[in-house]
Structure formats: structure tokens, C-alpha cells
Design a protein around this nucleic acid. Structure first.
Lengths: 202, 202
DNA sequence: AAACATAAGTATCGATCGGTACTGAATGAC
DNA sequence: GTCATTCAGTACCGATCGATACTTATGTTT
């Protein structure tokens, strides 16, 4: 049985979905889920409401897809950090990546995973919960990595890998809040360095 | 000339403004500025829209007054911490207070000064800016205190009091984000302890 | 008592919210 | 060509947004 690969029937889409999603992501990043209206979103995406609903579902689905794109784009420093050879290098890369992503020129200040929907009314509850899950997944990723570090003898077995993971995420979240308030990359890198000065030595 | 002290002319107010403001503060704290509708607010306050506008101005004014009340209430640990005798004790009290305030049973999780309006659309810009200012004032308070600690020889003059202040605020902000996501008081106190382990000794 | 001042309640304002029929345009299958 | 299928645009939906006239109620002052 051959599966037809290309040339779907019907009128072809007149815009680039990736490009549109990228722009939607930035609007959510800058204004938050509740602060971003469909008018804001679609005008930034360069498409009509109808096209948005056809291509992405609804506002909530669009937000989820924007968050996925954010994870694989601006927030990709997270998984990348876990590939560093030692726990200390993981921590350093994670906080450094967080500082850079939160203060990237040309992008909104802060972190979509924090300011996208930290507190919300009823209509934004699902978006808020999605971000809670997102942040917890980040902690889980670091937790797994530090458990491995303990197994490998890279971290003392006295240490709690879960605490180390939560500590890093907490500092990264704080960095995002400060960045959203206008703190500079230099300021925040110094903060990150200081946060790492408490890291357990070898 | 005698100034009449009591019994203002006209029909007396039928509700307690402090009580109403307290309830409004909690709604903003839980749902954020944009997520809190006037219906949410006034029904929690137990008054009508008209009474709210007469007593507080408008939604933005109400938010500012709720923030003031928050500063003097749940967030009063801030100024209290600066009265501790040593810089280390200030830092310990500040982070400990932040953990307790962000995980206070019977209150919304997190911090109004963070989740009240971290990112917003046009209508919430002023609220967002008010919180940026609020957080910066917190940093300034700590900054002044640590400058004094340097003067008093309590902190080495090699250290940057501004950095120490921003570091503490950053960690406190991260704690607030984590609390908003459901992290427990115990978890966050351990995080705070770890953040303090990097504090410059004597 | 009458006159006056303020609060509370009702009913609503125009604007905007997220979401959707409905209509015409553009393509592939036949 | 003709038909089927999908996309794009207009115009609009009911609901809700923050905010306000306007009326009624409840006090003090005289």
C-alpha cells in the first residue's frame, strides 16, 4: 500500500506555519497568555483568525504549540546542559543558558515558561497548568541527570539530586523574573555565578 | 478654628474598606491583574462595582492599593529582614520570609509582586510596571542595607552590595515562581538554605 | 420637619473577548 | 473542462470586559 506523500488536494496553504508559530510564540512570550488577544496574535502572524483556527485549533492549542517551539528553540539550552560531562558543568551551562535566553536581543525579555501564565483567571488555567508541568519537566530532566552523576561518583551520595535540580530551576526562574523587569545580561550572569558558588565542590 | 473630627456628612459607607481591600488583594494575588475581572473582584469584596469605583478609583488604583497592603502585610518580612544585625542574618531572614510568605496556608501560593503581572497586554502595562518598580525597590532596600554592612565591616569591601541584593531578590523571585507551581514550604526552605550556602562567610 | 450630601443598587454603555457561519478563491482528481 | 476539497476573507455571534448614568436609600445638618 503506497502512502501518498506530497501534493495534498485542495488549495495549498498561503503562509508558512513555522513562521507564523514563531511569531505567535513571541507575542505570548511578551504579553502572556491572557494578555495576548487573538487580534494581537493573528496580526503578528500575518494571517486571519480563520486561518489560525484551521491551522492550529484554538488559542489554547496555539499556546501549547508555541511552548513546544519555545522548548526546542530558545529553551533548548536545557537539554543541552544535561549533556555536559560533570554535574557542575551541567549547572553552569544551565544557568548560563537561562541568562542568555532571558536576555536575548531581539527577543522578549524573560522566559515564556514563567511569564506566559504564572497566575491566571479561569480562561487561562490550562495555560498556567501547562507551564507548571513544563517547569516540573525541566526539574525532572536535571534530577535524572544528577542521579546519574551520583551513580557515576561525580556527585557525593550525601547530596540530594532532587534538591540540586529544584535549586537550579528556582534560580533560573528568578533570573527570568529579573530579566522581565529589565535586568541586564551582565547583572544576571553575575547572579548566576554567585548561585553556582554554593555548588558542592567535586 | 475647630476641625470637625468625626461623623462625616452624607450616608456612611456600608462596608469596611480594609476588609474589602484585603479580599481584592487576594484575588489579584491568585489570578493576576489581567486574570482578575471586576466581577471576580467585587463579588469577593462583597460590594458592587459602583461602590468599588467610589472607594478605590478604578481597577488600576485598586491594584496599586492592594499592592501597598501586600507590602505592609504578607511582604513585610522584607523591611523586617533589613533590621537583622548582620548581613548574613538579613539574607537568611529575607529568604526565609519569602519562603513562608509564598507558601502561607490560607493564602494564594506565590508572590503578588511577581505573579500579579509579570507579562501583560496593553491594559496591564501599568500594573506590570508597578511590579517592576516594586521589585526594584526591594533590591534597593537590600542594597542600602548591605552598603551599611560594608561600612560597618560586617561585609568585606571586596564584595558588591548591589550584586548581593540582586542575588537575594532573584532567588526570592524564583522561590515565588516555584511556590506558584505547587512546591512545598519544606522543599523551598531547603532551596533557600542552599542559596545561602554560597553567602560570603563572615 | 426640610435641605443637603454621600453611598448603594440597577441597568446599561461602547469596546473587546474568543470563536464561527458563510462566501469566494485556488488547487488536485477525474 | 467538471467536481471535490481545502484555504482565505468578511462579517458576525453571544459573552464578557472595564466603566458609568441614573435612581433610590440613608445618613447629618439646619
Amino acid at each position: 500500500m503506497e502512502t501518498r506523500q506530497k501534493a495534498p488536494i485542495g488549495r495549498p496553504r498561503g503562509f508558512d506555519t513555522d513562521e507564523a508559530l514563531e511569531r505567535a510564540m513571541r507575542v505570548f512570550w511578551e504579553q502572556g497568555y491572557e494578555g495576548a488577544s487573538l487580534t494581537d496574535l493573528t496580526s503578528a502572524m500575518g494571517i486571519t483568525r480563520t486561518s489560525m483556527y484551521a491551522a492550529f485549533g484554538n488559542k489554547e492549542d496555539l499556546f501549547r504549540k508555541a511552548l513546544e517551539r519555545y522548548t526546542e528553540g530558545p529553551a533548548s539550552y536545557g537539554v543541552r546542559a544535561t549533556r555536559e560531562p560533570t554535574a557542575r558543568q551541567v549547572a553552569t551551562a544551565f544557568l548560563g543558558g537561562s541568562v542568555r535566553a532571558s536576555t536575548q536581543p531581539g527577543c522578549p525579555a524573560g522566559c515564556l515558561g514563567v511569564q506566559g501564565a504564572l497566575a491566571a483567571g479561569d480562561p487561562g488555567r490550562n495555560a498556567r497548568d501547562a507551564l507548571v508541568t513544563w517547569r516540573n519537566e525541566g526539574i525532572a530532566l536535571l534530577h535524572d541527570r544528577f542521579r546519574r552523576a551520583v551513580d557515576e561518583g561525580d556527585l557525593s551520595s550525601d547530596l540530594d539530586p532532587g534538591l540540586l535540580a529544584r535549586y537550579l530551576m528556582t534560580v533560573a526562574n528568578g533570573i527570568a523574573v529579573q530579566a522581565a523587569g529589565g535586568a541586564t545580561r551582565e547583572d544576571l550572569q553575575l547572579v548566576a555565578d554567585m548561585a553556582l558558588s554554593g555548588w558542592p565542590s567535586p
